[in-house]
Design a protein around this nucleic acid. Structure first.
Lengths: 266, 266
DNA sequence: TAGTGGTCTAGACCACTAG
DNA sequence: TAGTGGTCTAGACCACTAT
């Protein structure tokens, strides 16, 4: 044992100074990248890794942990560790808000977007009712924090996997008495109802950032290890400049690709 | 020892079935969220954690690993584990492309944007020269893969921290003979040079997604554990619809917040 | 039943920080 | 020098999957 320890120290001084677990992870990553292990392939078992790299099982596990954090592999208990199949991301362009989509009725915008890409879409309601306004919502509506607003909290499931947790908030006067208070908001979805209930919709502002999920979010979105989430705040304004909807969404980052096109501003 | 094992099993059956490390991590996360540990505070040492939660040091480490993956804490060897100070994200709105910014000269757009927020900006060049076009670039320019293009690869450092790795590609005929081939591209930056060299710039398309960084990216961007990156592809078109710049950037996600505003399309 | 990954222990030793 | 986090070992036992 002492002998092996010396070997390792010498080797690490000659070759490089990173930890063993990091070097194993990097070696495996390189092999994945050159295609030695293709998407869906099983990686060597921990037993095999300890033999190949002359390390303890703890170190082999640490190495695989690193790859999992990088989103390269997924583990399946009792089966093995596998190179991750890339989920096919759904594109989200600004076209998704085209008036023609929801004016004609049919489906809600998100359904339409995913549906256009040949994917099945389902919405699960987590909450539908009157709640006190969270800070960001109160700020957008210009009301006091905690004042009552209407909320629709739902989980969108695309192709059998949770895709986003979306919470839409509405001013009470626009929501109450419309189908925004029902699970099925009717043809054209929420946008159509807002457009009917008040002034026509005019502008959208979106604000995005990315971060790692909290534990409950990991569970709700069934996120594979090493998958970030995207935080989206979307505010919809009508022609009078009034904010009529604030949506706070947490999106599984491995399921989206976002695109915008716009003229260069003056 | 056996006794403790039984205690634990019984307790876990009564209360919940998650692993000890997860429960420790969740408990600490809750304490951070209610402010028991504020940003910058030191968490209990591993020694203290093993005593408080009656677990081995390995489990305490696993718990902290989880918090690190969630981007909540950072470790400093020899000092302790600390609640992470949130880097103040720099806002990136579409105003950043406003013609008035680069037409007047002064600084390049990214400098201008960060500079407006009172931050110091530096650019380190990693490469500047003629290279074969990568696939995405060739596709945008409508040329063959591997055909020569001009590239400026640089690392932007904002407020002393690497913020993004940005690689801008230009068609040779627009770059050669202009200051795009120099490290200092002159007043107004790359956009101003493109505008002068060819037709006026007209439109921008951006496409982005979020993922975990690879090991080299972690190092280059000095990413704290649990920090995702944003992959951004930006293509600039001139009034004739020709793609005149393709930028491929990898951005540290904890340093940006991206915003868009646009009228609802028809 | 054998093989896999997941959790956990109880240590040893290293590298870094601070008084 | 004492205290901290980082790496690594050599196991034990659990939960799940296949045969």
């Amino acid at each position: 044992m002492l002998l092996r320890w010396y070997c390792r120290v010498v080797a690490s001084e000659i070759t490089d100074e990173r930890s063993i677990q990091t070097r194993i992870a990097d070696d495996l990553r390189a092999r994945i990248e050159i295609g030695e292990y293709a998407a869906g392939d099983q990686l060597p078992t921990y037993e095999q890794l300890t033999q190949r790299y002359l390390c303890s099982s703890g170190v082999a596990r640490k190495a695989i942990d690193l790859l999992r954090q990088q989103g390269l592999v997924v583990s399946k208990q009792g089966k093995g560790v596998f190179v991750r199949e890339r989920a096919r991301p759904k594109r989200h362009g600004i076209d998704r808000y085209a008036r023609s989509r929801w004016k004609q009725g049919g489906t809600a915008i998100h359904d339409a977007e995913a549906g256009n890409q040949g994917l099945s879409v389902k919405q699960l309601y987590r909450e539908l009712g009157e709640v006190p306004a969270p800070p960001a919502v109160a700020a957008a509506f210009g009301i006091e924090e905690g004042a009552p607003v209407w909320v629709r909290k739902r989980t969108t499931i695309v192709d059998g996997r949770p895709h986003q947790l979306a919470d839409s908030y509405y001013p009470l006067d626009l929501a109450v008495g419309t189908r925004l208070t029902e699970e099925n908001s009717g043809p054209g979805g929420g946008f159509a109802r807002l457009d009917e209930a008040g002034d026509p919709l005019a502008e959208i502002r979106e604000e995005w950032s990315a971060r790692m999920p909290s534990s409950p979010e990991s569970v709700s979105l069934q996120l594979p290890g090493g998958t970030p989430v995207i935080d989206l705040t979307r505010i919809v304004y009508d022609t009078k400049g009034r904010a009529v909807e604030v949506m706070l969404a947490v999106i599984a980052a491995d399921t989206v690709e976002i695109s915008y096109r716009f003229p260069i501003p003056d």
